[in-house]
Design a protein around this nucleic acid. Structure first.
Lengths: 344, 344
DNA sequence: TTGTACGCGTTATCAG
DNA sequence: CTGATAACGCGTACAA
């Protein structure tokens, strides 16, 4: 009952009157150990209640089987789906996840990146904070050739890979769809243009307008954090305009803002889609609950998470060369629902 | 440019012509090191690009500053909020999180628990899988006195603590509220009774019926996984009953099932709350998007996460005795919204 | 205030 | 197939 000391491979070795080296090898089922001995070792391990000490092993083998995940926030539908996908893929390959959030704060992002490095993660998965300008804080990883995978909110870098969707094309398609429905005055509720996702969506939107000879006005481009409140504020902004000057279409860069905008607009008596067609982005569950259902872009966090981790691990195992390509683009289809259907 | 070797405290020591021991002490700002020397060490560390090796340190000090988090799923609103809260609290105290999901599978839960132990987490936070029967797989933690904190889906155990809400009281209140609104035939869409949360909610519901002299019928208690599909199926079940035999109230053990039930019922022409009053559980964002808004129970994952981690860390730091109490109950208030308001 | 010497538990290397 | 031994990077008695 003296359960106070760790049970180590030495205890097993002594117990079986063999060497610790053999125990170590036997424990990982090395074929260079007699099958019979292997069995004895496994049994003894259980009998003695042995539990391997991961970081003693890591210290020696210089690999932790751990991936660092650094995201802006943990509690959004997209992100929690991405994490779920990552965990699934990681688990499948015997890797584990250490997770931190920057809360959209570069400073926290830097501190967390350093922590991940100190923990000697075998690879880093990162989606950048709202106002991260450069990625100097990732230099330690690049220097030591620890693979970094950006996803969603990325930053171009030669020695890393990005997993993204084609935000430009998706936004273009959304806008074109609204135009096809007869919208002529389309407002865009977007995010910080510093981040590729919002910049690309904005550009896709603008290009679609241009290609259809529709004028773009600066005041139709609202920048926000795309929160519930931001959706609300956008609605109030629209309602503050004289009816003749109001947009007849709204494309929000996420579903949260779109939905809360809709609710506020509807509360004020506007009809959707008749008075104003609305489209969002992400295919968040809320898009199927709001009435009318929200037109959006299918953006699977799960897929993105699985892809990011699988590629990272393949690279770690030398199966694929991470840097042979710089970017993986996942598909993200337009999902048309009633909120944007002015015609039939 | 030969950045291929780790920079260790020995490199700093050699660089400064002092001993590694002093460097080690200086790095953690020990007052037993000359202030001037300390400064030199810090500077040299930066100059040489030193990054401490966490697990070498852990191996020596036998503490990892890492907490294990083991949950059924990562991608639910409640759970991602709880994780966000945990990360926030952990980060605040210099702890980090290693996260895994059981995907509601006991086998995975066991494997993951073992991994967490092998990684020598300083403490474990766990919410049990759907069908976990016993917690023998946590024995290694108990034996080595590594603190375990259960949250949400808990299991009574002397050497651990549980962070919960009063599910019984909350469910009682929901049911009483429905009764107050005139409901006489209340159906309960619940989860697996093996889990405290669903069992307690069921019992609260039943007791409220009893206290109001309303009959309970077995067939009014539906057990499911509380998924979108389960909500749908429950609705179809209700619709399959002859109108006179249908319930006039529905209490679902989560908002997802409640909302998707509502949508299906409404699609079939039932009016909510007139024909059927509905209440859910969790105060998920979707409860404020469905029309009419869903009556529910406010259940803050963020709070629960913060509470669980803070208590765990206080215990680790010896500030509080984890086991002086066996359970912390957070408040969870009824939020009345239109979906249940038959009267005014 | 600083240095010496050793150990944490594992794995790699080399020899047999 | 197995064993002896050193090393991974750090922390800490103990001594100076």
């Amino acid at each position: 009952m003296a359960d106070d000391k760790e049970v180590t491979i030495y205890d097993i070795a002594e117990y079986l009157q063999i060497s610790a080296a053999t125990v170590s090898r036997g424990l990982k089922n090395s074929t260079s150990v007699n099958k019979h001995t292997r069995k004895k070792i496994a049994d003894a391990a259980i009998a003695l209640g042995y539990q391997s000490n991961t970081f003693a092993s890591s210290l020696r083998s210089k690999s932790t089987n751990t991936l660092g995940v650094l995201v802006p926030r943990l509690n959004s539908y997209f992100m929690s789906s991405a994490l779920a996908g990552m965990e699934k893929a990681a688990n499948l390959h015997g890797y584990h996840l250490i997770i931190a959030q920057s809360l959209e704060d570069v400073k926290k992002e830097k501190v967390n990146a350093a922590t991940m490095f100190n923990k000697r993660v075998d690879g880093l998965l990162i989606s950048l904070a709202y106002d991260t300008q450069d990625i100097e804080h990732l230099e330690p990883f690049f220097k030591r050739k620890i693979p970094v995978v950006f996803f969603d909110r990325v930053h171009p870098h030669n020695d890393s890979i990005s997993v993204v969707i084609d935000n430009y094309a998706a936004a273009y398609n959304v806008t074109q769809h609204l135009i096809d429905q007869g919208c002529k005055r389309i407002m865009h509720l977007g995010g910080n243009l510093l981040r590729n996702v919002y910049n690309d969506r904005f550009n896709g939107y603008r290009q679609a307008l241009k290609d259809n000879n529709l004028p773009f006005q600066d005041k139709w481009h609202l920048v926000s954090t795309l929160s519930e409140k931001a959706g609300d504020a956008a609605a109030r902004h629209i309602l503050s305009l004289p009816p003749a000057k109001r947009p007849d279409g709204l494309f929000a860069a996420n579903d949260t803002a779109a939905v809360h905008g809709m609710i506020a607009l509807q509360a004020a008596g506007l009809r959707i889609p008749q008075d104003l067609a609305v489209a969002g982005f992400n295919n968040d569950p809320i898009s199927k609950i709001i009435a009318p259902n929200l037109t959006t872009v299918d953006y699977s966090g799960d897929n993105m998470g699985i892809t990011a981790v699988t590629n990272l691990i393949n690279h770690l195992k030398g199966i694929s060369d991470l840097y042979s390509t710089n970017s993986i683009t996942l598909r993200a289809d337009l999902i048309v629902r009633a909120s944007s259907l002015k015609k039939g």
